[in-house]
Amino acid sequence: MIVAERKTIPEMVEILKPHKKILVLGCGTCVTVCLSGGEREVSIISSALRIASRIQGLNFEIAELTIERQCDNIFIEQAAEAIQKADAVLSTACGAGVQAIAERYPQKPVYAGLNTTFLGILEERGVWTEKCAACGACVLHKYGGICPITRCAKRMMNGPCGGSREERCEVRKDRPCAWQLIFKRLKDINQLERLKEIEPAKNWNSSLSGGPRMLIREDHKI
């Protein structure tokens, strides 16, 4: 899932200052699961903005709405009326959702209420961790399902850096060494032989370094 964090209320107020009628638009998918931009968070953010607005005399008129997915035109349609009524939209979706709304409503200022941070999973209650860098050429099959690009701070593709201490990364001591995990996992599934293969330098063209990416499925086009 896409993981995002809320911007601070003063940051949001600063962004929204030139406007009066504001729609806080939530997204019911990834950001709901990571508890940053769903219906409940929209309500909390709206309350905080109303309080801040009254204290600072900004006279915001804040409306709230949460749709199933902001990155999908079918669902964006459900927000049409609310968006038309607003002077500006504060979207609490990921960056993709914010841009989908902005593209659909070219005359309407659309702002991001969240900082989109990474692709990850819920590790434990209240803790999300990054698992995928969306590099565009997955190598997970070679590393026992543990991604050295995302989970090794140095993106080492051919063995550990040697800096880890007690199975912890030397860059982020609160995170496990990815190569320790890879070794253990490959040992558990009897694939340690894989480590003898030398991985050539990665071609990053399929990643964001190669420019904005797109996926075209001719079989699904109309």
């Binding site: 601070t8 209320i9 003063p10 909390i44 905080a48 903005l49 309080i51 801040a52 204290i55 600072q56």
Partner: peptide
């Protein structure tokens, strides 16, 4: 923390 951010 939220109250502090909002100004209360």
């Amino acid at each position: 923390q939220l109250l502090l951010e909002a100004g209360l």
